[in-house]
Amino acid sequence: MRTMELRLNVNGSAQRWTIAPGELLLDVLRRQGYFGVKRGCEKGECGACTVLVNGRAVNSCLMFAAQAEGAHVLTIEGLAEGEKLHPIQEAFLDHGAVQCGFCTPGMALSAKALLDRCPHPTDAQVREAMAGNLCRCTGYLKPVEAVLAAASGMAKPPRKRRAKAEVTR
């Protein structure tokens, strides 16, 4: 098998890896232990494999690792600073925006890419930025709320429990 050298920066550390030309960025990152990069549809439809390449959200399943030569890649493992979670991660926890968790790394990274460019987004801008990240558990309301809260710096907004809908037959 032909191999080639790949130099890139992942989560702030310079890396030099040996890869095959046909390997996906998704596969190479997982082989190197970045398991927060999730393998979902592998067709660019679900966004579970989202990473930031030079600050932009991309699907790592639709990208050869070789295309990341010289790039700065951010995976979910690079979002927290040691034990200290990123405000987006805190907000996801506070808002119950995580259910099974499979889509969460991609969602958090799409949110990070948005907030880096647009620190005070509208609801519509958040929804647009997260449009490439599918959740199959529950939905998008809580993640959207979490991102808006992270943006406004409210770690724990007062949040009333919703009254249960009355069921009448």
């Binding site: 660019g44 966004g47 959200a57 991309v58 699907n59 639709l62 930025a129 449009a131």
Partner: peptide
């Protein structure tokens, strides 16, 4: 075009 990811790539 469908998603930010695809538009970026």
């Amino acid at each position: 075009i469908p998603s930010p990811q695809i538009r970026h790539m």
